Amino acid sequence: MLTLMTPGSGAVKPLNPETHKAWTRSIAEAGCLVEPWRCDVASGTFVLGARTLLLLGLRQNPCGIIDLLRAYDKGDRPTILSILEQATASSSSFCFSTTVRGSRGQISPLYCIGNSTLSEHGAEGLLEGVFALPGAGRH
């Protein structure tokens, strides 16, 4: 398990490239598979990498926030939703961790590191970052 975070935990900070780089460096040093993702705030649609999509058991790309939340451990959902709500309220750097059940029933940790860049009015903007899959090798 990364020292970055334990399942069900996360953080939101004011937008800071150095924070994002430090978190991303931690997952890179741990040898995780890292896949980018992005979300258009106006539409609420997420575009995920192929391995992340498969791990989450999702068949459709782009997908919605409800699709993602359903794939996460039930106990972690309120924390993750709160982090994403904060990230869409003001430009932020954020991270969270959860566990997911793979297609073969195995439980796997999943880390998310992202940034939100929003318009002045907050109705438009972009969430983007990476999902990291421990033990899946480097990408």
Rank of each mutant, 00 (worst) to 15 (best):
L2Y: 06
L2D: 08
M5G: 10
P7W: 11
G8D: 04
G10W: 14
A11K: 15
K13D: 10
N16M: 03
P17H: 12
P17E: 09
E18S: 06
K21H: 08
T24Y: 12
R25T: 14
R25F: 06
R25M: 08
R25I: 08
S26T: 08
S26M: 15
I27L: 15
A28I: 10
E29N: 07
G31C: 12
G31T: 13
C32N: 08
V34Y: 11
V34E: 07
E35N: 12
W37N: 09
W37E: 08
R38I: 04
R38G: 02
C39L: 05
D40K: 05
V41G: 03
A42L: 05
G44Q: 02
T45P: 00
R51E: 13
T52Q: 11
L53H: 03
L55V: 14
L56K: 00
R59A: 07
R59G: 09
R59Q: 05
Q60N: 10
N61K: 01
C63N: 06
I65V: 04
D67Q: 01
D67M: 01
D67W: 01
L68D: 00
L68I: 08
Y72D: 00
K74R: 15
G75D: 15
D76V: 00
R77M: 01
I80Q: 09
I83N: 03
I83D: 09
L84V: 10
Q86P: 02
T88M: 15
T88R: 15
A89D: 04
A89W: 08
S90D: 07
S91C: 06
S91Y: 06
S93M: 03
C95E: 03
C95I: 05
C95K: 13
C95P: 00
F96E: 05
T99V: 14
V100P: 02
V100W: 08
V100L: 05
V100C: 08
S103A: 15
S103M: 10
G105F: 12
G105Q: 10
S108Q: 13
S108D: 05
P109F: 09
P109Y: 13
P109A: 13
L110A: 11
Y111C: 09
Y111N: 03
C112M: 10
I113E: 05
I113M: 10
N115W: 02
N115A: 07
T117G: 08
L118F: 12
S119H: 13
H121L: 12
G122F: 13
E124Q: 15
G125M: 10
L126E: 14
L127N: 02
E128H: 11
E128K: 03
E128T: 03
G129F: 04
F131R: 02
F131N: 03
P134T: 07
